[in-house]
């Protein structure tokens, strides 16, 4: 009897918490779909605001996706070999490097952005292009890629695979592509999803680094909150949701299968 009471009160608390978090989401989505937010649902539903967002801000959406993709490519090309080198190295410097690599995560994005502007702001073309934002995003997301790949590489007997492949005549490059990359794949995929998600949602850095011509989606979102009708801003949130939620779900799914595979191996 007592157990039952405990169960139901726990359930109630959980539902309450979920509701506390979910209701604003629903409100926001509804706001983006109603004709007049102040009149409420009875004013009728419409896609007008979404269309308006698309017309006004689609450049920010494309730009965000472009930056996220470029960011992913750079973090893959730089991050995977870096993780490989770190996993193989036993030197103290490798450990120190590994620690410094996570600094950009700990330092506020605003500070990084300020440092970038102070240092490179003078290069006009660079300052005005979206590549400037990209640099900030790479700085911020690279540690996530390296960490994710490194975690997988540290959990397998990488040294032994390396030596076995070498004994079979595979030079460094072959070993990297034939053995390291395929075996690091769970980490590479998890890291990739993380990088894309973080890049699309990144605001602090982007807000400091953007120019009126290089707005990203979250910057545009802030802009619409400040200057547009609430309905338009909410519709914009809806668009953002549609982009980011599938990525989050994929990340979650992937984490689960990764864990399941790991425990199956034990």
């Amino acid at each position: 009897m007592q157990r039952k009471t405990l169960f139901y009160s726990a359930l109630a608390l959980t539902l309450l918490t979920v509701a506390f978090l979910v209701v604003p989401v629903i409100m926001s989505v509804m706001a983006g779909l109603t004709k007049n937010f102040f009149l409420g649902i009875k004013s009728g539903l419409t896609l007008e605001w979404v269309v308006q967002v698309w017309d006004l801000y689609q450049d920010t959406i494309w730009r965000s996706m472009g930056i996220a993709l470029a960011c992913l490519i750079i973090t893959l090309v730089a991050g995977v070999p870096a993780a490989y080198a770190l996993a193989l190295s036993k030197s103290r410097w490798a450990r120190i490097f590994e620690e410094t690599l996570i600094l950009p995560v700990a330092i506020p994005g605003l500070a990084i952005a300020l440092a970038l502007i102070q240092t490179y702001g003078g290069f006009r073309e660079f300052r005005m292009s979206w590549a400037f934002i990209l640099v900030g995003h790479v700085l911020y997301t690279l540690p996530f890629m390296v960490r994710s790949v490194l975690a997988v590489l540290s959990s397998i007997p990488l040294h032994e695979y390396e030596e076995a492949a070498a004994s079979l005549g595979a030079a460094k490059r072959r070993r990297f592509f034939d053995i390291v990359v395929p075996n690091a794949m769970p980490g590479i995929l998890a890291g990739s999803l993380m990088v894309v998600t973080l890049s699309i949602g990144e605001f602090n850095l982007s807000w400091m680094l953007h120019t009126p011509l290089t707005k990203t989606l979250p910057v545009g979102l802030a802009d619409s909150y400040a200057s547009m009708r609430l309905e338009v801003a909410s519709a914009y949130t809806l668009v953002f949701f549609i982009m980011i939620v599938p990525l989050l779900i994929a990340m979650q799914k992937f984490g689960e299968t990764g864990r399941a595979r790991k425990s199956a191996r034990r």
């Binding site: 032994e160 695979y161 030596e163 395929p182």
Partner: peptide
Amino acid sequence: IEKRHVGMVFQSYALFPN
């Protein structure tokens, strides 16, 4: 080692899981 053309068998087998 990759240029010596030797065959090696390891205690832990070191087979490639991929």
